[in-house]
């Protein structure tokens, strides 16, 4: 299935690996940041309603 390159295959795969890792990594980072902020806000709001 994977394409076969005549030369420099390692370089090409390395570049595409970076091209995949960076966007995915940034997505995970943004997701974690958003989750943490949202959870903290929900917790604080719940505390406020209780009191």
């Amino acid at each position: 299935m994977l394409p076969v390159f005549e030369q420099n295959a390692g370089f090409i795969w390395a570049i595409y690996a970076i091209g995949a890792v960076v966007p995915i990594g940034l997505f995970v980072y943004a997701l974690i940041r958003a989750r943490i902020a949202k959870r903290r806000l929900d917790r604080l709001q719940a505390e406020r309603e209780q009191s």
């Binding site: 958003a34 943490i36 949202k38 903290r40 806000l41 604080l44 406020r48």
Partner: peptide, 19 residues
């Protein structure tokens, strides 16, 4: 997404300040 996290974070800060 990061901006939404920031908005939530600041709202949380406001709640803490009020408390």
């Amino acid at each position: 997404m990061l901006m939404r996290a920031e908005v939530w974070g600041r709202r949380g800060d406001v709640l803490i300040a009020r408390k």
